[in-house]
């Protein structure tokens, strides 16, 4: 990226000072209140520690162990499934945002946007309860509907079925439109000049073509943002599993984040949990950087 002319005239020290003046507050807050407490967790990953007795230095022992841990391996595979699903399911949000963007009546659009935001006030607990009352094999809504349709053989045990459980958890994202992502796309589309669409309309581009060749490329930057958010969430998240399935049946829905949580708070292996956390961190970082590289390459191509 070429430096702006004005900046180029400055000496590096001035540039640095100017840059620091802007980023220092954020950086300092982040270093002091986020990174610093986190180091406790990072250095624990080289110890065996139960939370109260003296921590024992084990070097890379925890990581070695992690390599041979079959539960962790299962958890990684499950994570890969959830990650793939999360990436594929980013697309309904893109479509919804574009459709919303194309609604011309600004007042209506405003109302829709507010409606998109409102689900953020619904607490996790209510969502969990709702799905519990839908998935429950005995009194849940789904099985009752299936029975009402006269197909009692098709009833499922849903979360209790090792083959279905991951799909069930993924389906809890229905309708797969995320408020934040949608509004970020919308912001991206809105910041592009209207004239671009006018030109497209003059060229006689249909709605699908406009979507593929105009809107989609325009929000590539926003897509990248949301992709990274999605990757991070899918790789480190575990809340739903903790409440609904405990990683089961067996380990069918176990994910690394939940395994880390259990290792710390159920078996008091704080050092081991920290090493899982650090491993997850490195993996997310690599995958994120790879995906960014991939997009950079495709953009340049």
């Amino acid at each position: 990226m070429a430096a702006p002319r004005a900046a180029a005239r400055r000496r590096p020290l001035d540039q640095l000072l100017l840059g620091l003046a802007f980023v220092a507050p954020a950086l300092l807050l982040n270093l002091v209140f986020d990174w610093y407490p986190m180091f406790d967790g990072i250095y624990r990953s080289f110890y065996r520690w139960d939370g109260y007795s003296t921590a024992v230095w084990v070097g890379l022992g925890n990581f070695e162990r992690l390599l041979n841990d079959t539960v962790f391996r299962t958890a990684l595979w499950n994570m890969a499934f959830f990650l793939a699903a999360a990436i594929v399911l980013m697309f309904p949000t893109i479509v919804a945002s574009v459709v919303l963007f194309r609604i011309r009546h600004q007042r209506t659009q405003f109302v829709y946007r507010v409606l998109f935001c409102i689900p953020m006030v619904v607490p996790w607990l209510v969502i969990m309860l709702m799905w519990q009352f839908m998935y429950n094999p005995q009194y849940g809504l789904f099985n009752r509907l299936i029975e009402a349709l006269g197909m009692p053989d098709l009833t499922q045990t849903w979360l209790g079925d090792p083959d279905l459980v991951k799909w069930c958890l993924v389906f809890m994202g229905f309708p797969f439109v995320t408020t934040n992502a949608a509004l970020i796309y919308l912001g991206g589309l809105k910041s592009v000049s209207e004239s671009v669409w006018e030109a497209a309309a003059l060229d006689g581009a249909g709605p699908v073509q406009t979507f593929l060749y105009l809107e989609l490329p325009l929000i590539a930057g926003q897509f990248k943002l949301n992709l990274i958010g999605t990757i991070t969430a899918a790789m480190t998240g575990y809340g739903t599993q903790l409440i609904l399935t405990k990683g089961g049946p067996g380990f069918a829905s176990m994910v690394p984040g939940l395994y880390m949580y259990f290792s710390a708070f159920k078996s008091q292996k704080y050092g081991y949990a920290a090493s899982i956390g650090l491993t997850l961190f490195l993996m997310s970082l690599v995958i994120t950087l790879l995906s960014m590289r991939f997009f950079k390459d495709t953009e340049e191509a």
């Binding site: 429950n136 009194y139 409440i243």
Partner: peptide
């Protein structure tokens, strides 16, 4: 019950209650 591995602690008592 069938599918007990998918039934959370909070959920199970409902089977008895109902």
């Amino acid at each position: 019950q069938e599918g007990w591995t998918g039934t959370s602690e909070a959920d199970a008592p409902n089977l008895f209650m109902t």
